[in-house]
Write a protein that binds this DNA or RNA. Structure first.
Length: 473
RNA sequence: GUCCCCAUCGUCUAGCCUGGCCUAGGACGCCGGCCUUUCAAGCCGGCAACACGGGUUCGAAUCCCGUUGGGGACACCA
């Protein structure tokens, strides 16, 4: 058995988008499952559109989702001589020819053909000119087969037959000496011994153009697999107007990479009714057979649900760690009062089932930072009233009389007071909630007290009592 | 225009290959209820789909043909 070698080959013309991540993920999963090799290759032969910044963005994105590569990143612009020499081999073998048609002429002819309702293909006028030493600018074209069929046995779509009459004589070397995509991929996939070329569905019709090149070059043809596209809610190809498409945008919005990976894996692949997969489970269970053949609509709500799921079931220590940069950004860290890690973990446990993202979590966690309460005006006006002041005072006195802090003891004391006053739980709980957190919604009151600690619970009660007493009826 | 791919709840999907177990299952979302000190979470329940038309068959979501619809490709982009 030859070892599995797969690759992810993005072009660095922008950030790493969701569709790219899924393509990379499926390749990566297969490589890890088969104990094969996952290669990162940057297809930057388009000088005008490629940027180093994009390469960095791709690398940053892959790292964030934890898709590590075993070889690369290779850059095609560093392999120019290789493509040129293989192109020359084709020329010498009579499988390629010089084309002296000008780019704008080709463009004009293409347009003309289109208006006549014809195929906008190259008409092959230089094919039999036999130019050996072009005097001016010339591009090298591959002599594509014109008869017969090219059969692609796709890992995902099955057997697909293309009539070779639809094939075009593709340019493989531009007049500036740079190879074109369809040629450099073939040379690289062959030379890098790629066993499975797995890419987006949009490359499906590139495959019958590439297969004859493998053959002309004398290389074995790899297996192909074409992943269905990811669409936006309007069923059009996923793009900016559907919301965020950059992976890093998801990082910034407070998503966990595990959640994104889980979501993307399930988008277009399934394993019975299972929805939640750990990374090792994905590696173990992934297979081509259950990859969907049809396009999938990206559903942000389901991703959000998954993220919430990971937030509340993941190890709180890890969640706390990833939360830190978000807390810093929100200015919640006072450098003179470093926050103990274990308190942060406690805080995460306190709020995690209410937050759907880390950004969300910051909001939930805000009331527990700082000595004093910051009230939401509406909440304070409604609950910190002179009418509520006497019972708040009684509660404060009783809490003060309890020496240490124990959740059970304080809860018991609280309920006894409710009983004695003939109140309902909620009648006291809401004012106290506002007194402690400044808000009308919070986790369980006694859990809140525990995280706040005895001193802050008492001081915040005191502070809120003062406001209640001073408020006008 | 030509070629290629695709078609199950609003969305992701199971089932399709190897027809009967499908009165079509799960998940997200939505709606209702329970729980409850608030908000969540959790639990229970509900709404909701085999694109259409022909075949084949005792029987079709499943096999075949056609139609329609959606997507992709047709660059000296990748």
């Amino acid at each position: 058995m030859t070892p599995v070698r797969v690759r992810f080959a993005p072009s660095p013309t922008g950030f790493l988008h969701i569709g790219g991540v899924r393509t990379a993920l499926f390749n990566w999963l297969y490589a890890r499952q088969q104990q094969g090799v996952f290669i990162l290759r940057i297809e930057d032969t388009d000088q005008s559109r490629s940027t180093d910044q994009s390469i960095q963005a791709i690398i940053e994105g892959l790292r964030w989702v934890g898709l590590d590569w075993d070889e690369g990143p290779y850059r095609q612009t560093e392999r120019m001589d290789i493509y040129r020499s293989h192109a020359m081999n084709l020329l010498e073998g009579g499988q390629a020819y010089w084309c002296v048609c000008k780019a704008d002429e080709l463009e004009a002819r293409r347009k003309e053909a289109e208006t006549k309702g014809l195929s906008p293909r190259y008409d092959g006028r230089c094919r039999n000119l036999g130019i050996t030493q072009p005097s001016g600018e010339a591009a090298l074209r591959f002599k594509a087969p014109q008869t017969g069929q090219t059969v692609v046995d796709d890992l995902i779509k099955g057997r697909i037959v293309f009539d070779n009459t639809v094939l075009d004589d593709l340019i493989i070397l531009r007049s500036n000496g740079y190879p074109t995509y369809n040629f450099s991929v073939v040379v690289d996939d062959a030379l890098m011994h790629i066993t499975h070329v797995v890419r987006g569905d949009d490359h499906l019709t590139n495959t019958p153009r590439q297969v004859p090149m493998f053959q002309a070059l004398g290389f074995p043809v790899p297996q192909f697999g074409h992943l269905p596209m990811i669409l936006g809610s309007d069923k059009a190809r996923l793009s900016k107007r559907h919301g965020a498409t950059s992976v890093i945008a998801y990082k910034d919005m407070g998503y966990l990479p595990e959640a994104l990976v889980n979501y993307l894996a399930r988008l277009g692949w399934s394993y019975g009714d299972q929805e939640l997969f750990s990374r090792s489970e994905l590696i173990e269970k992934f297979n081509w057979k259950n990859v969907q053949t049809s396009a999938a609509v990206f559903n942000p709500e389901k991703l959000l649900w998954l993220n919430a799921e990971y937030l509340k079931t993941g190890p709180p220590e890890a969640v706390a760690r990833t939360l830190v940069p978000f807390l810093e950004q929100a200015g919640l860290f006072d450098p003179s009062h470093p926050v103990p890690q274990e308190w942060l973990v406690q805080l995460v446990v306190l709020v995690r089932e209410r937050a759907k993202t880390l950004v969300d979590m910051v909001e939930w966690v805000k009331p527990y930072f700082g000595e004093s309460v910051v009230w939401e005006e509406e909440a304070a006006t409604k609950f910190l009233t002179p009418a509520n002041a006497p019972v708040l005072r009684k509660l404060l006195e009783r809490f003060v009389s309890l020496s240490g802090f124990s959740k059970q003891a304080w809860e018991e004391q609280f309920k006894r007071l409710v009983d004695e006053e003939g109140m309902k739980m909620g009648q006291l709980a809401q004012p106290v909630r506002v007194a402690l957190t400044g808000r009308t919604a919070s986790p369980g009151l006694f859990d809140v007290m525990e995280v706040l600690g005895r001193e802050r619970t008492l001081s915040r009660l005191q502070q809120s009592l003062a406001r209640a007493e001073a408020a006008h009826a």
